[in-house]
Design a protein around this nucleic acid. Structure first.
Length: 775
DNA sequence: GAGTTTGAAACT
DNA sequence: CAGTTTCAAACTC
C-alpha cells in the first residue's frame, strides 16, 4: 500500500523540534522527576463521576458506542479504499484496540505484529481524568506510517464504572522497518516537537498546529497527553516523564481539574480527542472559532461556533438513563467485535447524517449497515439520571441539543454539497454529540420521535399545533416521559420503555418498574418482548438515507427516505395526526401501511404526494392527454391507470385505496411508467427534498432508462436511490427472526392480484427496516 | 385538567 | 392470522 503520508512522517530535523513552541514550552516546565506509576483504575475510582444507573452495570452495557471511534474505524473499512488510504489516523477508543488492529490487518497483506501493553497511568487524579481522554496511541501500520490511536478511557470509566486499563498499543510491521526517524523517536528523549508526532497533510498544517499550541497552553497541555502515547511500552521512563511533564505543566498553569473546569476545556479536549490531523486546517478553524467565540460569549454552552454542541461540563459524568441493551446483546449474539463495529458504524453513519441531513437518519442502504436494526433506540439518552437531574441543567442540555439540531439542520440545508471534507473532519465531533452522550449511548437514533417535527419545521409559529409541539419539544425534548398507569412501564405502551430508557422523575407513571432498581425485571421483560418481536425495540422509523452516496446531495438525506418499520394502521386520523406513527415520525406512509384515507403530508402510501412541479407537469400532461384523447375517455383511462392522477385535485387528496379497482393493473406502458415515476417520487413540498421512493421494480428499470429525460427527478438522485435501496430489501421479509411479519403486507387496496404481486416487488425495492441477521 | 379519540400493543 | 381487549398518547373542550 502506497501511502502518501509516508513521506510526511519523516521526522523534521531535531533542530526544528528544539525551536518549536512546544519544545520551549516543555522546556520551561519544572524539572522532571520520576513518578511511580499507578494503575489507571485506581485513579478512575477517585473520579468525581456520579454514580451510574445500575443499568449500565448490566451485562449489556459494557460495550461502548463511540461514533468517532467508529468513524475512524470506518476508514479502515477495506471496502472503502479511498478512506483507508486517505486517512491513516486510526483512532481506537473505548479500548477496542484489537478490533482496530484486526481490521487494520485485514487491509494489508503484510503481517502485523501487535503489541499490547497495559501501561499504568499515574496517580494524579487530575491528570488521570484528562489523560485517558486524550491519550493517543501510536499505530505503525505495515508501511510504518504513524497513526494515532486514542483510547477513550473516559467512556470506559464512565460506563463500566471504572477500571479499564489504558492500553497503549503499538503495531509494528516486522517486515518493514520503521521510517527513519520514527524508530529513533521512540527512543528519543522527551520532549520533542508535538507537531512531528502527528501526520500533517502539509507543512502548513504542522506550522498551524505549532501555532495553535503556542496560542493556547491548555491546548498544548492536552496535546502533551496525546503525545504520551508516543512512547512504546519499552519507553517507560519516557512515558513516566511525560506524565510528569503533563502534571507539572498543569500545576504550573494552575489548571483546575477535575474533571473539566470549563466547557472550553472540555471543548478543546473533545476536539483533540476527535482530532483528525489530516484535516488540521479545519480543526484549527473550529478551534479558533471557539477561541473567538469565547471572547464574545463567555457562555460557551449556549453559543456554539459550529455544529458542535459539547456536553456541558456539568453533564459530564452523568450517565444517561438509557437501557443499553441492544448493542450489548447484539455483541453477545455476534460475539464478534467487528460485527459490532459494522453495526456501530451504521449507527454512526446515521448520526453522521444528522449532520448532513435535517434529521437523524437511519442507515439502511448498506446491508452491512442494517444488519442490526433495533440498535440503540434510546430516545432520551439525553436525559440525565434521576439522581442528578436538575431542571436547570436539563433545560440547558435540551436547549443545547435543540440548538445543535437547528444548527445542523440549517447548515446542512445551506451547504448541500459540503460533505466529504466536512464529513471527514467534523462528523466525529458532531456525531459524537448527537449520536452519543458521554457514555456513548446513542441518542436520537429514532430522531423522528424526538427531533422531527412532523411538519418539517414549517409550522405556523402561532398555531396551537406549533405551540404544542414546541412545548413538547422543550419539555421532554429527546426525553420521553410516560404517563403509564397500568402497564408498570414494562410494556411497549410505555414510551420510555419502548424507547429503551428508564423512567425518570418527570414521568407520571404509576407503579413504575422501569427503573434502574428493577433492572433485572426490565431486562427480563424486554427480553421477553424481544423474543416475541425482535424488532420491538427497533427504531420505528427506519431511515434509508445513507443509501445515498456520500457524494449525494444533502437534501436527499431527509426523513423522506425513511419509512416506518411496520407502517401505520390508521383508520380515522388520515395519517395527519400524531396518532399515526408515520406522521409522528415525520415520514410518509408507505406500502407497508394499512392506513385508510391516508393524507400523510409526508407522503401518502399511494405515493401521490408530489412536489408542486411534478404535479404541474403531470397536470399538464394530463390536460394534453385529455385534449388529444378527448375529454370523455381520457379521464376514465387515467382513472384506470392511476386514480390519484385521474383528478387534478387528487394529487393532494387522501388516497382512496378502494379506488384501485380490480381492473387496476400494474403499470406497463413506458409512458405511464415515466409519468408514474414522477408521481411516485415524493418530495417535500417545501424543502424540495426527495421524500419518498416507492417505485416498483418496473419503474426502476424505466427510470434508469429514462432518467436522463426525466427533468422532474429531484436532485437527479433517483438512480442511486433505487440502486442502493435494492440490496437491503432482499432481506426484508426473510430476516424477521421469528418469521413475524414486520413489513406489513396487509393490503387494504391490494384487492387485485396484480397489485398484490406488484407490491411484493415493491417491498423488495424499498428498504423498510434492517434485518437482524447478517447477510 | 377531564374526558374523548385513536391506534399500537397485547391478548385470545 | 384475525379479532378483541388493553393501554396510553394524542387530542379536544
Amino acid at each position: 500500500m502506497d501511502t502518501p503520508e509516508k513521506t510526511q512522517i519523516a521526522a523534521p530535523p531535531v533542530s526544528a523540534h528544539e525551536d518549536s513552541p512546544v519544545f520551549n514550552f516543555i522546556r520551561s516546565l519544572s524539572p522532571i522527576k520520576p513518578v511511580k506509576s499507578a494503575h489507571i483504575a485506581q485513579t478512575f475510582t477517585s473520579l468525581p463521576f456520579t454514580s451510574l444507573p445500575s443499568v449500565f452495570t448490566s451485562p449489556h452495557a459494557n460495550f461502548h458506542k463511540d461514533p468517532s471511534f467508529l468513524r475512524r474505524h470506518q476508514s479502515l473499512d477495506p471496502s472503502n479504499p479511498n478512506r483507508s488510504s486517505e486517512n491513516h489516523n486510526i483512532v481506537c477508543r473505548n479500548g477496542d484496540f484489537t478490533n482496530g488492529i484486526s481490521q487494520k490487518r485485514e487491509i494489508s497483506d503484510k503481517k502485523v505484529s501487535v503489541e499490547v501493553h497495559a501501561e499504568p497511568c499515574k496517580e494524579h487524579s487530575d491528570f488521570a481524568t484528562e489523560f485517558p481522554q486524550n491519550l493517543r496511541h501510536i499505530f505503525y501500520n505495515p508501511e510504518g506510517n504513524l497513526t494515532g490511536c486514542s483510547a477513550d478511557a473516559e467512556s470506559a470509566v464512565e460506563t463500566a464504572g471504572m477500571s479499564t486499563p489504558i492500553i497503549p498499543v503499538v503495531v509494528k510491521s516486522p517486515e518493514k522497518p520503521l521510517p527513519e526517524g520514527e524508530g529513533q523517536q521512540q527512543n528519543k528523549e522527551w520532549p520533542i516537537d508535538a507537531s512531528d508526532l502527528f501526520i500533517f497533510s502539509s507543512p502548513n498544517d504542522a506550522e498551524a498546529f505549532r501555532e495553535l499550541i503556542q496560542r493556547s497552553p491548555d491546548f498544548g497541555t492536552v496535546c502533551l497527553s496525546s503525545l504520551m502515547s508516543r512512547f512504546t511500552p519499552d519507553d517507560v521512563t519516557g512515558f513516566e516523564r511525560l506524565q510528569q511533564v503533563d502534571l507539572l505543566s498543569r500545576e504550573q498553569q494552575q489548571i483546575e481539574e477535575p474533571p473539566y473546569p470549563t466547557e472550553e476545556a472540555y471543548e478543546q479536549k473533545e476536539m483533540i480527542k476527535n482530532l483528525d490531523f489530516h484535516n488540521l486546517d479545519k480543526f484549527l478553524d473550529k478551534y479558533m472559532s471557539i477561541q473567538l467565540d469565547k471572547n464574545s460569549h463567555n457562555d460557551a454552552g449556549t453559543s456554539m461556533p459550529f455544529d458542535y454542541a459539547p456536553v456541558p461540563n456539568f453533564h459530564r459524568g452523568l450517565r444517561r438513563r438509557c437501557l443499553d441493551f441492544e448493542i450489548a446483546e447484539l455483541c453477545k449474539l455476534s460475539g464478534d467485535d467487528s460485527d459490532y463495529s459494522h453495526m456501530a458504524l451504521s449507527q454512526h453513519d446515521e448520526n453522521t447524517l444528522v449532520n448532513e441531513g435535517q434529521l437523524p437518519v437511519k442507515s439502511e442502504g448498506d446491508p452491512l449497515r442494517c444488519t442490526l436494526p433495533g440498535i440503540g433506540l434510546h430516545l432520551n439518552a439525553l436525559a440525565t439520571t434521576s439522581n442528578d437531574y436538575q431542571s436547570v441543567e436539563h433545560e440547558n442540555l435540551l436547549s443545547e441539543n435543540q440548538l445543535m439540531n437547528t444548527q445542523i439542520s440549517s447548515s446542512s440545508l445551506n451547504l448541500p454539497n459540503a460533505h466529504q471534507s466536512l464529513h471527514e473532519s467534523l462528523t466525529s465531533v458532531v456525531s459524537e454529540d448527537i449520536g452519543s452522550t458521554d457514555n456513548g449511548v446513542l441518542v436520537v437514533q429514532d430522531g423522528s420521535q424526538s427531533c422531527a417535527y412532523p411538519d418539517g419545521e414549517e409550522l405556523d409559529h402561532n398555531s396551537p399545533q406549533k405551540k404544542r409541539r414546541k412545548a413538547e419539544h422543550s419539555e421532554d425534548g429527546a426525553c420521553k416521559r410516560c404517563n403509564c398507569k397500568k402497564s408498570k412501564c414494562l410494556k411497549l405502551y410505555c414510551e420510555c420503555f419502548a424507547a429503551g430508557v428508564y423512567c425518570i422523575e418527570p414521568c407520571s407513571c404509576l407503579d413504575c418498574l422501569n427503573k434502574p432498581i428493577h433492572e433485572n425485571t426490565v431486562l427480563a421483560t424486554r427480553k421477553q418482548i424481544e423474543s416475541r418481536n425482535p424488532l420491538a425495540f427497533a427504531p420505528k422509523v427506519i431511515r434509508a438515507s445513507d443509501s445515498f452516496p456520500d457524494t449525494g446531495d444533502d437534501s436527499n438525506k431527509t426523513p423522506a427516505s425513511a419509512r416506518h418499520k411496520r407502517g401505520c394502521n390508521c383508520k380515522k386520523s388520515g395519517c395527519l395526526k400524531k396518532y399515526c406513527e408515520c406522521y409522528q415520525g415525520g415520514v410518509g406512509c408507505s406500502f407497508n401501511c394499512r392506513c385508510e384515507g391516508c393524507k400523510n403530508s409526508f407522503g401518502r402510501k399511494d405515493g401521490s404526494t408530489l412536489i408542486s412541479v411534478e404535479a404541474e407537469v403531470i397536470e399538464e400532461g394530463k390536460e394534453n392527454f385529455e385534449k388529444s384523447m378527448g375529454n370523455q375517455g381520457s379521464l376514465e383511462i387515467m382513472k384506470q391507470r392511476d386514480p390519484i392522477q385521474a383528478t387534478p385535485s387528487a394529487y393532494y387528496r387522501p388516497s382512496n385505496q378502494n379506488t384501485y379497482s380490480a381492473k387496476n393493473e400494474p403499470p406497463q406502458s413506458t409512458s405511464f411508467v415515466t409519468t408514474s415515476s414522477s408521481s411516485v417520487l415524493h418530495a417535500s413540498q417545501n424543502q424540495g427534498q426527495l421524500k419518498h421512493i416507492a417505485l416498483q421494480p418496473e419503474f426502476e428499470k424505466h427510470y434508469d432508462n429514462n432518467n436522463n429525460n426525466n427533468k422532474n427527478n429531484v436532485g437527479g438522485k433517483m438512480p442511486e436511490v433505487l440502486r442502493s435501496n435494492d440490496t437491503p430489501n432482499t432481506v426484508i421479509k426473510t430476516t424477521s427472526p421469528n418469521g413475524k411479519r414486520v413489513s406489513s403486507p396487509h393490503s387494504d387496496f391490494g384487492s387485485s392480484p396484480p397489485l398484490r404481486s406488484g407490491r411484493r416487488l415493491i417491498l423488495k425495492s424499498i428498504p423498510s427496516f434492517p434485518s437482524l441477521t447478517q447477510h
